[in-house]
Each structure stands twice: as structure tokens, then as C-alpha cells.
């Protein structure tokens, strides 16, 4: 019965059984067990199977991603997807990005708390005069925290020079990616390829410079992951951001390869849009980072 469908309702595509999620579940299991054992083994300097398990999990995850995405690309190319499904994917991606924002928020929160509360209080601010007097008598509050209460010394990372260049590079990459997006929408494949290629190159340059900055921090400034809360927030924020740039660059490279194969049309390009959103998000995080971690 089910009467006739309301006019122009295109069936929502519900996939048949799929093997990839369970493969992905086993992969995550191996990654978690492997990573946990690897961490413990490397701290204790005992050789073990952790690293191998981790690598096996990562390989399996990559296989899963390829298989799963291949499925989706085949379905998409054979016209099984409705506009409604496209909306599901887009909304899903936006909520995923929101979850990423909240992940970074935890680390920014730690940074603000350390700067505005923890470090001043250790230095005796508010009603904590005795904390300073009794527990850390030699400590003076400052930011960047170049001398911790425990006595670890470091130098601060300036914002001029490398970090500024990196900021410009990432901002420009957002612009080039925007023009790539315009290219796909107006069906200018040449513009699309050039602009997307440029974005990838800029992303790689950023990562290279960021790597160089870490070497500089460790070798010349004595700024390490162990340098107290300043080094902790610096490395975890820039490190997680760098991981996201790496992931974003990989996504863009995959998109580039798909575009070379002739995928996507001016109105069917969810994967491109999702990748572009991700890249812009990573850029915005960097701007926040540049202001809050480097400048002020």
C-alpha cells in the first residue's frame, strides 16, 4: 500500500550490509592497545609488541578508509544518492568539525587557565600570598613562563619571522582553496586544478616550516615538551594543529587525484566541500593559535 510517495520524493539510500565498519572497529582496537603498550614500553625502555600492533592497526584503518570510500564513491557515481543524503553528509561533516573545535577548546582552556589563574596564583596573586611564600618562595609569575616554580628554564618562542610567515602561508592557502572551490562550482577545471595544487603546496610548506620551528625550539631555545606549562600548551596546541594540517593535506591530495580522474561536477562535490571546510577550520584554529600562543 504505502500510498504513492509524496510527489518527487527520491528514496533515501540505505546501504546494504557493509564489512568496513567492523574492520574499522578492529583497527581502532589494535591502535588503542598498540598505542597504550607502545607508550608504556617506550617509557620503560622495554622492547615489546606495542609498536607493531599500533602499525598493524593503522594499516588496517587505511585499508578500511580506502574500502569504505571506494564503496561510497561507486554509489555516488552510479547516481544512488539523493539531495537529502547529500544534506546528511554535509550536516554530519559540520557537526564533526564542531566536535574538533571543542577538542581544541579543551587545550585553549588549559592555556587560558594557566595564564590567568594557575601561574599568577603560584606567584601569590589573589589571596594566595602564602602559597607563594611557603611553597614556591623564589617563584615570580610571568608569561611566557620561562622559569617554572620547579626551576626549569627555557626561552620563549617569538612571533615574528617563522610563525608570521606560516600565518601568511596558511591564510593564502585558504584563499587559493576558495578559488579552487569557485572553479569547481563554475566548472572551470583548469582553475580548480591549479588552485587546489597551490593549496597543497602551501600546506606542505607550512608543515616543513613547522617542523623546522620545532627543531629550532628544541635545539636553540631549550623549549621542549618538558619545559613546564608554557612548553606543554605550545607543543600540544601546535602539535595537534599540525596533525590536523597533515590530515587536511592528505585529504586535499586525495581530492586532487580524484579531480585528475575527472570526479565531481559543479553541483555534486560533497567530498570536495567537506575537505574545503576542514581546511578552513584548520586555518581558523591557526589564527586563534597565532594570536593566543605566539603574540599575546
Amino acid at each position: 500500500m504505502a500510498q504513492e510517495a509524496p510527489e518527487e520524493y527520491q528514496k533515501y539510500y540505505v546501504p546494504e550490509q557493509s564489512v568496513w565498519p567492523i574492520v574499522g572497529a578492529v583497527a581502532l582496537f589494535l591502535i588503542a592497545v598498540g598505542a597504550a603498550n607502545f607508550v608504556v614500553e617506550s617509557v620503560r625502555e622495554e622492547p615489546g609488541l606495542g609498536g607493531y600492533t599500533l602499525i598493524a592497526g593503522l594499516v588496517m584503518l587505511i585499508v578500511m578508509i580506502f574500502g569504505w570510500f571506494k564503496n561510497q564513491i561507486d554509489e555516488s557515481m552510479s547516481g544512488k544518492y539523493s539531495a537529502q543524503l547529500g544534506r546528511s553528509y554535509r550536516q554530519g561533516m559540520l557537526w564533526f568539525i564542531f566536535s574538533e573545535v571543542m577538542f581544541f577548546a579543551a587545550f585553549f582552556g588549559a592555556l587560558f587557565y594557566a595564564r590567568a589563574i594557575a601561574v599568577p596564583w603560584l606567584g601569590g596573586a589573589s589571596n594566595n600570598a602564602m602559597t607563594n611564600e611557603v611553597l614556591w618562595p623564589a617563584f615570580e609569575a610571568m608569561w611566557p613562563l620561562t622559569l617554572t616554580p620547579g626551576g626549569t628554564e627555557t626561552q620563549a618562542m617569538g612571533w615574528l619571522g617563522l610563525p608570521l610567515y606560516n600565518t601568511i602561508i596558511l591564510l593564502v592557502s585558504s584563499v587559493t582553496l576558495h578559488y579552487a572551490h569557485v572553479g569547481i562550482e563554475e566548472n572551470k577545471r583548469g582553475q580548480l586544478k591549479v588552485m587546489l595544487g597551490l593549496t597543497i603546496v602551501l600546506g606542505c610548506i607550512f608543515l616543513g616550516l613547522q617542523g623546522y620551528e620545532y627543531v629550532h625550539a628544541y635545539r636553540d631555545l631549550g623549549l621542549t615538551l618538558q619545559s613546564g606549562i608554557y612548553g606543554n600548551t605550545f607543543f600540544l596546541l601546535t602539535g595537534f594543529h599540525g596533525l590536523h594540517v597533515t590530515l587536511g593535506t592528505i585529504i586535499l591530495i586525495v581530492l586532487f587525484l580524484r579531480i585528475m580522474k575527472g570526479h565531481f561536477t559543479s553541483d555534486e562535490h560533497f567530498a570536495f566541500q567537506a575537505g574545503a571546510w576542514y581546511w578552513h577550520f584548520v586555518d581558523v584554529v591557526w589564527v586563534m593559535l597565532f594570536v593566543c600562543v605566539y603574540i599575546i
Binding site: 594557566a114 603560584l122 617554572t148 616554580p149 618538558q226 606549562i229
Partner: peptide, 13 residues
């Protein structure tokens, strides 16, 4: 990994 987010000696809390 030797960070001190939650350790006063490194400026954390």
C-alpha cells in the same frame, strides 16, 4: 611524556 598540566612545579595546577 613529562608535561605538567596538572603539576604546580611546572606552572600547572
Amino acid at each position: 611524556f613529562g608535561t605538567s598540566f596538572f603539576d604546580a612545579a611546572g606552572g600547572g595546577d
